[in-house]
Design a protein around this nucleic acid. Structure first.
Length: 229
DNA sequence: AAGCGCCTCAACCGCATGGGA
DNA sequence: TTCCCATGCGGTTGAGGCGCT
């Protein structure tokens, strides 16, 4: 038997109305069944997406607030491109919406900011040495003469995240993101973290260990020193 | 007014995962 | 245990809108 050709592209108002009616009747599941029963010439998957990303009454339409943007930035720092996970922390926003917003707005802002921070930070050999065992692809610093005591070597953001990374720099390093994901997983399994002297020793899934020591540097900045071995 | 390029975002694609038979 | 189907997830695409020349 020949399959009826499925339509693609933007949804029409009548299709939306039909889908809403059938979701109300059968619930937000069995999308293939709903697609067939409704007579919509759409795949079940397409119906599910349309509902979850647009028609669902819980969806918030409109501008993403500054507050929501900050949450997205922080969670992306923590989890990377885990859009659905990030979306679960922003009621009414979908993973698709957050993903698009990140790609079109936030990423550009951060890239521009990182470019600025990188230009500033490359003169600070002292701070860079904290990351010398991690391949952040940082160019060799020429001099540390220009850094003044009390001055933030990473620009205006002087905070460090829960994993000890500076919030302002190297945020998009793929290696850093992998380590973040790994640490995020580890945080759910404290048995892999042991104390040794002043350091936490973390056993990694890659067959190596990381020693993490809390420090406060000469400028009064605190954070964590990573030592991979 | 027309043409062009850029941007946004809804929708699609393909792979991964989970659950039931 | 294996297979199949439904759903989840993240990356990509392309239509349409908008601004600039």
């Amino acid at each position: 038997m020949q399959e009826e050709k499925l339509s693609k592209g933007p949804w029409h108002e009548e299709e939306d109305e039909l889908l809403v009616t059938f979701v109300t009747l059968f619930g937000e599941r069995r999308w293939d069944y709903i697609a067939k029963a409704s007579g919509l010439k759409r795949s079940g998957k397409s119906c599910g997406l349309r509902w979850l990303n647009y028609l669902c009454p819980n969806i918030k339409h409109g501008y993403i607030s500054t507050e929501e943007e900050q949450i997205i930035i922080q969670l992306h720092k923590k989890w990377g491109n885990k859009w659905s996970r990030i979306a679960r922390n922003l009621p009414g926003r979908t993973d698709n919406e957050i993903k698009n917003y990140w790609r079109t707005r936030i990423r550009k802002k951060i890239q521009a900011q990182e470019q600025e921070n990188f230009q500033f930070g490359r003169n600070n050999a002292k701070r860079d040495s904290l990351f010398s065992n991690l391949d952040f692809n940082v160019q060799k610093h020429e001099t540390d003469d220009e850094h003044k005591p009390g001055e933030n070597p990473f620009g205006t953001d002087n905070s460090f995240d829960v994993l000890g990374f500076p919030n302002s720099a190297f945020a998009s390093s793929p290696y850093k993101i992998r380590i973040r994901d790994w640490m995020s997983e580890l945080s759910d399994d404290q048995s892999k973290i042991t104390q040794q002297g002043g350091s936490n020793i973390v056993e990694s899934c890659f067959g190596c260990q990381a020693s993490i020591a809390e420090y406060t540097d000469t400028w009064g900045w605190s954070g964590s020193i990573w030592d991979m071995n």
